[in-house]
Structures are given as C-alpha cells and as structure tokens.
C-alpha cells in the first residue's frame, strides 16, 4: 500500500476542515480528489506530502497518515525523498531548487546515486510521451510559463524515482491537446505500480475513482 490515512481530523482553526477521514491508495492506482472550493483538497494533499504539519501547523490534528510504511507526522518530508513527489498548485517556484532541468538532473544523479545511463533512459521515457520536453532541459525556470514549470517539477520527481505523485490543481494548466498525453502518462505510471492523487475541477469524474470531500467527510467511490 502506498498511502494509508486513518481517522484523520484536521482544522486550521478549532473547527475541523474534515474529520474521521479514512482512505487507502494502492500501488497502480489513480485517484481524483474532488469537492467544493475550500473543502480541504489541497490541505489533504499537503498532509500526505508532510508539508502540513511540518512547515505549516493547524490547530487540530488527530489520526495518522502512513506513507511507505512510516508516519508522515513523525518524520519530516526529507525522509520521504525520493518516494513522494508533490507538485503544488501555487508557489511552485519554491520547489525548483536549481536553474534548469539539466542542473536538477545532475543533482538527482548525485544525491540518489543513479548512473548517467539511468537518467538518460528516464529522460527518453518521458521524451516519448512529451514531445516538446527536450526544449525545456536547458531553459531557465525563470523563463518558463506555469505549465512548463509543472512539467519540469513532474520530470524531476520522475527522474528521482518517486512512487507517489501528489498533483494539486495542475491539470487546469495543461493545454487542451496535452490532456490526453497526461492520461497516457498516468496509465503508464500505474503499470509501473506507482500511485497518483490529483485534485482537479472540471475533469470527467468517471475517468478515475474519486475521493470526494463533502460536509467534512471523505466519500470514497
């Protein structure tokens, strides 16, 4: 199991945003996190990623989240590297540590201990899916549009070998013709036994199983 959420209650204030949340993400699964604006979709993703409570703490936190066999609340986010890849819907620049993708790839190679051939193979795999990715490798992150930054951060996580992808509101930035490409990518990741949780509005909710937050409860379909 990639993620296990047990009896989770969280509130930025005394009043809980959601309570008693219980859900699991298996290997090879894609789940869409759905709900009204402000219901806590992003917060739940941030909790799974460990951004909350390690970098921003609410007033109420009960329950457990287990990722890769360890408690997210008891271990800092760095302990889940390279397992978890979190692509935020805003402030994405904070997650891009170097000047461009080539520099990120070099960093990953040294930190994770990959061979250059591994990096090239993974570059090739993504290049098969995203035909214009090759243009981004040497492009400065500062010169990229939001979608290009999203694609870059995803690429970084793919290179480092993440198994759990948490994508917050990123499909809204995907150009019309590219949505089917991302769907193909998700299917490929599923075949590799990786897991994806994404928040998305206006996505055909029948495309993937849905976790819907409504009236502070999580409804799993």
């Amino acid at each position: 199991m990639l993620v296990s959420v047990r009896e989770l209650t969280f509130g930025w204030q005394d009043e809980p945003l959601f309570e008693g949340v219980h859900c699991e993400l298996q290997e090879g699964a894609v789940v869409v996190l759905d709900g009204e604006n402000g219901c806590g979709k992003t917060t739940l993703l941030q909790l799974i990623a460990g951004v909350v409570p390690h970098f921003s703490r609410g007033k109420r936190l009960e329950g457990h989240i287990i990722v890769n066999g360890r408690s997210v609340f008891d271990n800092p986010p760095r302990d889940f590297f390279p397992y978890t890849g979190f692509v935020p819907g805003r402030n994405i620049d904070f997650f891009l540590l170097n000047g461009n993708l080539d520099e990120e790839a070099a960093l990953i190679q040294s930190v994770v201990g990959l061979k250059a051939s591994d990096i090239e193979r993974k570059k090739g795999e993504l290049g098969e899916i995203f035909s214009d990715l090759h243009e981004l490798w040497s492009t400065s992150f500062g010169d990229m549009a939001f979608y290009q930054k999203v694609l870059s951060l995803f690429t970084i996580y793919y290179l480092q070998g993440a198994r759990l992808f948490l994508l917050d509101e990123v499909l809204g930035a995907v150009p019309d013709g590219q949505l089917s490409v991302w769907m193909e990518l998700f299917q490929r990741l599923c075949r590799q036994q990786k897991g994806i949780v994404l928040t998305a509005h206006q996505l055909n909710e029948h495309a993937f199983p849905v976790w819907k937050i409504k009236d502070r409860k999580l409804l799993v379909s």
Binding site: G35, E36, N37, G89, E169, G172, A173, H201, Q202
Partner: peptide, 12 residues
Amino acid sequence: GHVPTSLSTRRA
C-alpha cells in the same frame, strides 16, 4: 485568465 480555473463547477 480562464474564469473556471481553480474553481469548482458550481463556483465557476
């Protein structure tokens, strides 16, 4: 920009 971006169907 695009009005519905980041908004639920009802809000958009």
